[in-house]
Design a protein around this nucleic acid. Structure first.
Lengths: 190, 190
DNA sequence: CTAGAATCGGACTGGCGACTCCGTTTCAAA
DNA sequence: TTTGAAACGGAGTCGCCAGTCCGATTCTAG
């Protein structure tokens, strides 16, 4: 489209960029998106100047983190979808997304609150994810494992909501499991 | 305990306090807790000075709003619990709480993030609510309408999570209804 | 009606945090 | 090695917002 010329980054620049992304992922997920940029820079072992040279805006950094996460999840989802039969794959992916989305709801909120209609790069990644999920859903419905009246919007909402449910729970694995039982039972027909 | 003397508020002061609470409830729920205090004061038709005289801190205002909401919900819950039989009351209250909690998750987060171990007044209200819900839950379990392995923590988490689910949904009443079907189905035994 | 106490309003302050600027350092092409 | 372009770091700027202060206003007791 438009990103044609792009000279390759200098070695140190590429290294710093990667360190920033890692640090930002870590800090944002554990301490929330409110953490000052300077702390992220410090965690990455670089100066704020460097941070803002790579990501012109705090929001841009947030977006980059989201994109990477989404891509990871989408890839694993695709793998699962290919390996297992529809119903099994569907429920496995549901777990995967919920488990991986700890704290991510807050990201989405932060981005949305920033007035952005989700920038191009993010748009792209979310679309890929949605496509995956839509396929999984209709596959599972075709085999009768999931009630047929659910659409993609409901599935998406349930994924986010189940993530929120898990965040509220004390770190008790058996309670988590019970929540999954409730939701999965509800997803099955009748 | 300690709030003994409390002279009654002057007429205008009481009026302004009420206007502030109403405005804050409205603004916080529709535009989020990040809205500057000045806007809340303007929405209430008073100056910031007045706002801070009634609520020494933005956080205190947030808390007051929460308390009022919780008390309202708790009262309605109690009423429902008294009028209907256990199972019916349980599910009706579940709906009530979820419907009324639009945007409230964000409040709780904001308070928790402020480092407060939830101040005394809020503590009290939440305890009342929890007691209500605990009663409702065990009642519904006794009649066999709800799976017996669920505890209060799971119920609380599911209430918050279902609220989050609803917030993600496009404003489509039938989709909302489908979500309730999923969750309620999952809550029932087997 | 009047005084003075309670309240009000909004200009002002202080601190915080996103982002900029530029002298210094590091890389890599020749 | 040399050299200039690329990248770095972090002190400094700027705007925003919670919370303060005090002269002006509005209640209400007598």
């Amino acid at each position: 489209m438009s990103d044609a010329p792009e000279r390759p980054l200098r070695a140190d620049a590429a290294r710093n960029r990667a360190k920033l992304l890692d640090a930002a992922t870590e800090v944002f997920t554990t301490r929330g998106v409110g953490v000052p940029t300077e702390e992220i820079a410090r965690a990455a072992g670089v100066g704020v100047g460097t941070l803002f040279r790579h990501f012109p805006t705090k929001e841009a950094l947030l977006e980059a983190v989201m994109v990477r996460r989404l891509e990871t999840i989408t890839a694993r989802t695709a793998q699962l979808a290919a390996e297992a039969e529809p119903a099994e794959a569907f429920f496995a992916c549901f777990r995967l997304v919920v488990d991986q989305s700890a704290g991510k709801n807050e990201f989405v909120r932060a981005l949305a609150a920033a007035g952005v209609d989700v920038h191009a790069s993010l748009q792209e990644s979310t679309t890929a994810m949605r496509t995956q999920l839509a396929g999984l859903l209709s596959g599972a419905q075709r085999t009768g494992a999931v009630r047929p009246d659910l659409g993609l919007p409901e599935l998406l909402a349930l994924l986010v909501g189940t993530g929120a449910t898990m965040e509220q729970l004390p770190a008790d694995p058996s309670a988590r499991e019970r929540i999954y039982e409730v939701v999965f039972d509800g997803l099955r027909p009748h």
